[in-house]
C-alpha cells in the first residue's frame, strides 16, 4: 500500500497530472463559456486539432513559439466565430453544426499539414516550450518542482481558472453570459444583446480551445500528428457536465481526469508489459462515461442550452 502511495506522490507523477490537465483545463473552460451562453460547441475536437496544427506550423516556419500560440488562439477564435455564425446567427442545430465544424476543421488540419509539410517518414518536430522554474516557489518540496517548474502555458492555465471564475461571476459581461444562457428573453428585455453576447462567449471559448491545441503541439508533443487531440475535445465536453458548468469544478474535473490518465500511463510503464498499452488508454474514457452516469442525474445545464434565440418568437 505504501509503495503505491509513494508511487503516486512522486514528483514526476504530480508533474504529469498538471501537464495532462493543462490542455484539458483550457478546453473545458472554453466549452464552459460557450455552454454558459447557451451554445453547445461540438466543434471543440476539430477546433483543437486545427489550432494545434496552425500553431505548430506558425512556430515551425517563424521560429517563434509565442507567435505559434497567437496563431493557434486566433484560429480557435475564428472557428468559434464560424460555429457561432451557424448556431447563433442562423439558429441551426447545435449538435449537427458542431459535428460539421469538427469534420471541417479536422479535414482542413490534415489537408493543410500535408500540403505544407508533405509526407515525411519522420514527422517534423520543433523545439517546444521549456519548463520555467519560479524562484522560491519551486523550492517547496514535492509541490514546488511538480507545479512551479512547468511550462509558461501551465502557469497561464493556473491563472485562467480564477480569472474565468472572476469574469463569469463578477463582471457585467459574465452576468450577460449567464443571463443569455439561462433566460435569453429576460436578458433581451433587460437590454442585453443575446446574439452579440453569445457570439463573444463562443469566440472566447474557441480561443481557449486554441490554447489547448497550442499546448499539445508546442509544449507536450512538440510535433503535429493526426492523433494529437485523440478525443480530448470530447472529454472536455464531458468534464463541463462533470464540473457542473462552473470554472472551479471544471478545473477540478480536468485534474481528476488527468490523474486517471497519468495513472494509466504509469500502469503502461510499470511491469504490465504483456497487456497492450491501448487497453490502458481506454481507461480514462470509461472512467469519464461512468462518472457522467453518476453526475448527470443532478446536473443542471444552462436552461437555454441548445435553444436558438429569435426575437420575434413569443
Amino acid at each position: 500500500m505504501s509503495a503505491v502511495f509513494e508511487q503516486i506522490f512522486q514528483v514526476g507523477f504530480l508533474a504529469a497530472i498538471i501537464r495532462i490537465a493543462t490542455p484539458l483545463a483550457f478546453a473545458t473552460l472554453g466549452e464552459m463559456f460557450s455552454e454558459r451562453a447557451g451554445v453547445l460547441n461540438l466543434g471543440i475536437e476539430g477546433i483543437m486539432l486545427l489550432s494545434a496544427m496552425a500553431g505548430f506550423t506558425a512556430a515551425s516556419l517563424s521560429g517563434s513559439l509565442w507567435l505559434g500560440v497567437l496563431v493557434a488562439v486566433l484560429v480557435g477564435a475564428a472557428m468559434g466565430a464560424l460555429h457561432a455564425l451557424f448556431t447563433v446567427a442562423l439558429g441551426l442545430s447545435q449538435h449537427v453544426c458542431g459535428i460539421g465544424v469538427t469534420l471541417f476543421c479536422s479535414g482542413l488540419a490534415y489537408f493543410l499539414y500535408r500540403l505544407i509539410f508533405g509526407q515525411q517518414s519522420v514527422p517534423p518536430s520543433i523545439d517546444g516550450f521549456k519548463p520555467v522554474a519560479i524562484p522560491l516557489l519551486s523550492d517547496i518540496p514535492v509541490l514546488g518542482p511538480a507545479v512551479f517548474n512547468q511550462f509558461t502555458l501551465v502557469y497561464l492555465a493556473i491563472i485562467a481558472v480564477p480569472l474565468a471564475a472572476f469574469v463569469l461571476y463578477r463582471t457585467p459581461w459574465g452576468l450577460s453570459v449567464r443571463m443569455v444562457g439561462e433566460n435569453p428573453r429576460a436578458a433581451d428585455s433587460a437590454g442585453v444583446s443575446v446574439i452579440a453576447t453569445r457570439f463573444q462567449a463562443v469566440i472566447l471559448g474557441g480561443a481557449l480551445m486554441g490554447l489547448a491545441g497550442a499546448f499539445l503541439t508546442m509544449a507536450q508533443f512538440n510535433a503535429f500528428t493526426f492523433g494529437v487531440v485523440s478525443g480530448r475535445g470530447w472529454v472536455a465536453i464531458a468534464l463541463v457536465v462533470f464540473g457542473r458548468w462552473d470554472p472551479w469544478r471544471s478545473a477540478g474535473a480536468a485534474l481528476l481526469f488527468a490523474f486517471v490518465d497519468a495513472l494509466q500511463l504509469r500502469m503502461q510503464a510499470s511491469g504490465l508489459g504483456h497487456i497492450p498499452y491501448e487497453a490502458f488508454l481506454m481507461l480514462p474514457f470509461i472512467f469519464t462515461i461512468v462518472a457522467m452516469a453518476f453526475m448527470s442525474r443532478n446536473a443542471v445545464a444552462p436552461s437555454a442550452l441548445l435553444k436558438p434565440f429569435r426575437r420575434e418568437e413569443r
Binding site: 472529454v235 481506454m282 457522467m292
Partner: peptide, 10 residues
C-alpha cells in the same frame, strides 16, 4: 452525444 462520442474512443 457525449457518451456515444466517448464510446468511440473506448
Amino acid at each position: 452525444v457525449v457518451s456515444s462520442l466517448l464510446l468511440n474512443s473506448v
